[in-house]
Each structure stands twice: as structure tokens, then as C-alpha cells.
Design a protein around this nucleic acid. Structure first.
Lengths: 321, 321
DNA sequence: TTGTAGGCGTTATCAC
DNA sequence: GTGATAACGCCTACAA
């Protein structure tokens, strides 16, 4: 490995002069500087990240932690994060799994964006106490070193419910999400509030796990009990697709016999016929916002929690009854 | 930050004793050792990655580089990589974009798995010359420090073509891929070979870019020229889905008027009706194999290039004519 | 069994 | 303007 020491030797100067030259310090004369730079290039010199990091106590790397790598869900989100970070001279690395947690306390990264249920709140608070900066996308966590950038789940669930009800639906099925999901819990809170406001609506709550399978299971239940048009709010699109597919395979017509609305507006919904009504938000913006907040935190600025707003997308999967 | 120096002070021993104790060196007596460990825990000591890395000249981190984060394509692949690496005490980080290239030469990672067209062959060979270990999934690259783990694209394309031809198709459309894709180029080579072997088959080559849109465009062309059952080999599933959707929307029946076969067996195809015939392989195995080969390379073992085998999945999108 | 000391590659504070 | 030199936190001969 070629280090500044080698360059110094070759150039007949001291290592400090080399360091100055490489870092563009104006103290060194243009001649020595360009001579040093030329030698550095000739020797194929590349600075050693570990050494710089050890000295400067920063890596200029940000970690994004995900529960898993599956699903097309994360593409735009990560892209949004990366663009902002790169613009500010930071790099993004994406990690998953328990083992990778070490990267944070070992100071391999300057901060983390968390969308990862394998972190407990306690663990994160512990990191925050140690002085690490965090942005959480999947929980509420009050700590001066932690910023929340959360989806406005409640508003979204409200929109979905109000939409179904405004279309005249009196009989509703709610396909719920896993209880360890923050988003699912928030959405359910709003669902219950809406139902409280509409005592005339008859709602059945069905278990769900955010996967296609539980949407199919829900469809089976709905069909078993079928005796006229009903509405269904699936707490995410994946389950809505499962419900859709099973219902269609049994000869039911979505948007007529069964009105369906989802949440997230994932890519996949583009392939559904009729088009799925759902709750939409910009994943790119979500990621970008997370990065911005994290950088502010790292720069020692005081930042408020942020919300990502959502809107209703009307497809053809919900019809008036 | 609490360092071994702090622990040493607290325990009244030297830093080397602390280091030995923390690393389980049997030279230090059980009593001192346990006392030191207790103090370390009490002080919330966590080793500093940069320092250890600087000393040991390794980070035990492997980087996977992707052209972009979009697409559900990578989930299983990354999962396969991660499992193998974690088992061997390595961590996986996923990177994308030009800026992240620096992680390799700056020695932030101990090796890299490349599925990223933003790296040029020259750049990679340069890294290899510097002593970095690489596994490439998206190109052929001959260098002792580089191992190839490639999909058997030619066999797959052959399977697909032979299948269509064996079902009696004499009129074929080939929806090609982007020319900067290694996989696309390899698949086309096999396509051309098959066509050479079957002069009785009339084939039309259509441009494609591996995205849904070019599948739709292909469908438009096919329908324009339609005068009886034809077969279509889309060089990946995304385009096959595009072709399928557009054709269906125009009232054509897939598997009857137009027989379609894709490549990759992506998740999405499960949602197609009729089910898509395609070429299948284990992405999980692909990732796992890449990690295994990289670790062998790092351990200085001599390793041969590897191929990931593919098989035909018969759906209902191809019928005999 | 424990301590001393040198070094990994940089940066940065001093002198000169 | 340039050069010693001391960190940064850790590991590891070698000495005691």
C-alpha cells in the first residue's frame, strides 16, 4: 500500500507537507504542491479511509437499515436518501440484519436511518445516548439526537375509510397488519376513530400480515359471508392485491361486488385490472427528507419531527353502492 | 468515547492487558480478565472500528454494488449473499452510484461483489491490480483476483427458443435487451445460434430495454403485423409482462394468439393470468455462491469461475400451434 | 502473567 | 513554507 510516507520520500519533503498539498492547504507553494500531486498520481496513491476516519472521527458514510431486502418497496426510498447525501459529500450504505447493528456503535458510520424492526426502541435510545444521530421512519422515539420522519398514516387511513363510506358502503371489512408494524398500528387507530364517528357502518376486522397471502385469506372470508356489495380496506396494497386476485379467481367482480382500497400505491398495483384505489405518497421524498433531517442533526442543528403527507388515488376498484 | 485506555486506568492495569482480555487471550489470568470485562461492560465500551481496521488491515465488511436500488429483483440475491457472509463473521453493505466506488480503493471493505454497470472493466481491473478481491456477476473479467459467478444465459435462451420451436412456432418475435447489459448480449448470442440451427423459423428482432414499456411497444408491433399465431421470446420477464398486458388490453389472448416466454422468473409473474412461461434460476443461490467465492478469494484460495444453472418453467403462456 | 513500546496512515499543532 | 512530532484507538512482539 502506498501512503503519504512514500510520496514524501519520493518528493524529498516531509509527510506533513504532503498532507497539506493533498488537502489543498494554501500554505504550501504551488510548485511543491503540483510536484507532490504529480508523484501521488504516479504512485496511484489513494488515502486510507480507516486512518482518516480514526483521526477525524468521522466517516462521511450514512447507514440505512432495513428489516429485509425483499420487496420493490425500498427502491425510490433509498434513491431519495442517496441523492441528498451524495450532494452533501456523504455516501449511503444499506444494511440489514442483526449483525449489521454493530456498524453504528463502532462508529463506522456517522449516522443512521432506521426502517428496521430488528432494532428495539431501547437499543436505539442507547445509541442516541452515546451521541449517535438517528432518523427513525418506523416508530416514535423522543430523544434530542433522534428525529422522526413518519408517514401520515392516520390521515391516510382516514381518507381511505371516508372514501369507502362516502361511496355508500355500510358493510366494511378491514384487513389489518402485523402488530409489530408501527404503520399498521397507526392506521388501525385511525380506522377505529372513523368507525366511532360512523355507528351506522358495520365493520368486520380481519387479521393480516401485510403479505399477499393474508389478502387471499380475507377474500375467502368475505366470499363465505357474501350477501351483497361490500367494501374492503386493506391496510397495505400487497394484501389488496391478494384479495383482488383471489376474488377474481372465484368469479367475483372487484369494484362491483367487492370494492377495495389499499395503502402505499406500490408499483405492482399498475398491473391490476381494474386499477386499485389506494393511498399514495412520495417514497422518494420520504427518503430525501430523512437524509436532510439526519444531516441537520449531525451539524448540530435543532430539528422538528417531520410528517410525509398522503393523498387518495381513485382507481376503479371502488364503486358507489 | 471510552477506549481501552479508560478501562486500563479504571482497572489499574496496562492497555495491553485490557486488549488481551477483550480478545480472550489466555495469557491473562481469569481474575484480571473477568475484572476487566466487567469494567468494560460497565463503561459501555465498544471497540472502534476504524482503529481496529487500521491496525489489522481488514474491516470484515463486504460491499455489494448495484446499478440502482429499484426493482424487486435484488431481494433474494442480497439475502443469499448476506447469509453466507454473516455465517463467516462478515457484514454486507449494499452500495450504488459512482460516489460509492471509493469504498473499495480506500480499503473500507475487504472485497466487493459487482452487479453494477457504472463500473467499467478497466476500473475493476485497476482495483484488482491493487490487490482488491472481486466477484463479478455482470461481466467476464479475467484476473487472478477476480472471480466470475455468471448466469448461464446462453443455456437459458436456448431453452426458451427450443421450447417455442418445439411447440411448432415458425414465426417468432425476439424482444431484445439493452446493449450495455451482459446478460442481454449473452442471451442474444444463443438466440442467434438457435436461429441458425432452424432456418425454417422466421424471426423478427425487436429493440428492448428490459423495461415494461418496451414490452408494450413490442406488443404494438406484433399486433400491427398480426395474421395468425406467433411466438415471442422476451429477454426478460418485465418486458414479457408489458407485452402481455398490452396484448390483453387489445383483446388478444396470450397462450393462444400470442405465445410468450420470458426470462428470470421474477415474483411479478405470479400475478399474471395465464401464468408466464419463463427461465428460472435461484437468485438466492446466486448471491450465496458469489459470497462463497469472494471469501475463498480473500483467503487466498484458487477458485474457478462459477455458473448458475437455469431451467425452464412451463406456464400457460405458450401453446402448441 | 503483565507491561513497554512501536506502528497502522492520517491530520494538525507547533516550531523553525 | 516546511518539518518534526504528537495524537486518533487498537494490536502485538518483546521485555520484564
Amino acid at each position: 500500500m502506498v501512503s503519504i510516507k512514500d510520496i514524501a520520500k519520493q518528493a524529498g519533503v516531509s509527510i506533513s507537507t504532503v498532507s497539506y498539498a493533498l488537502n489543498g492547504n494554501p500554505k504550501v507553494t504551488p510548485e511543491t504542491s503540483s510536484r507532490i500531486l504529480a508523484i501521488a498520481k504516479e504512485l496511484n496513491y489513494i488515502p486510507n479511509a480507516a486512518a482518516r476516519q480514526l483521526k477525524k472521527q468521522e466517516s462521511r458514510i450514512i447507514g440505512a437499515f432495513l428489516t429485509d431486502f425483499t420487496g420493490a418497496f425500498y427502491g425510490d426510498l433509498l434513491q431519495g436518501m442517496k441523492e441528498v447525501l451524495n450532494r452533501k459529500g456523504y455516501d449511503l450504505i444499506v444494511c440489514s440484519g442483526l449483525q449489521s447493528h454493530r456498524l453504528l456503535p463502532e462508529r463506522m458510520i456517522d449516522g443512521a436511518i432506521i426502517l428496521d424492526s430488528t432494532f428495539s426502541d431501547m437499543e436505539l435510545l442507547d445509541f442516541a445516548d452515546r451521541g449517535h444521530r438517528l432518523v427513525v421512519l418506523d416508530r416514535e422515539l423522543n430523544h434530542p439526537a433522534v428525529n422522526e420522519v413518519l408517514l401520515d398514516n392516520k390521515a391516510g387511513a382516514n381518507l381511505a375509510m371516508d372514501y369507502l363510506i362516502s361511496m355508500g358502503h355500510k358493510k366494511l371489512y378491514i384487513v389489518m397488519g402485523p402488530s409489530d408494524s408501527f404503520d399498521a398500528r397507526q392506521r388501525m387507530i385511525a380506522v377505529r376513530q372513523t368507525l366511532d364517528r360512523h355507528p351506522e357502518v358495520n365493520a368486520v376486522l380481519l387479521e393480516g400480515d401485510f403479505n399477499q397471502g393474508s389478502g387471499e385469506a380475507a377474500a375467502r372470508t368475505i366470499i363465505d359471508q357474501y350477501d351483497g356489495p361490500v367494501g374492503a380496506f386493506c391496510l397495505n396494497d400487497e394484501m389488496a392485491i391478494g384479495l383482488h386476485n383471489y376474488a377474481v379467481s372465484q368469479g367475483y367482480r372487484i369494484g362491483e361486488q367487492i370494492s377495495v382500497i389499499g395503502f402505499d400505491n406500490i408499483e405492482l398495483t399498475r398491473y391490476l385490472q381494474p386499477r386499485l384505489s389506494t393511498i399514495q405518497y412520495s417514497k422518494h421524498r420520504w427518503g430525501a427528507m430523512a437524509s436532510e433531517q439526519l444531516l441537520r442533526l449531525i451539524q448540530g442543528e435543532d430539528v422538528d419531527h417531520e410528517r410525509i403527507y398522503v393523498t387518495l388515488v381513485e382507481g376503479d376498484s371502488v364503486k358507489r353502492v
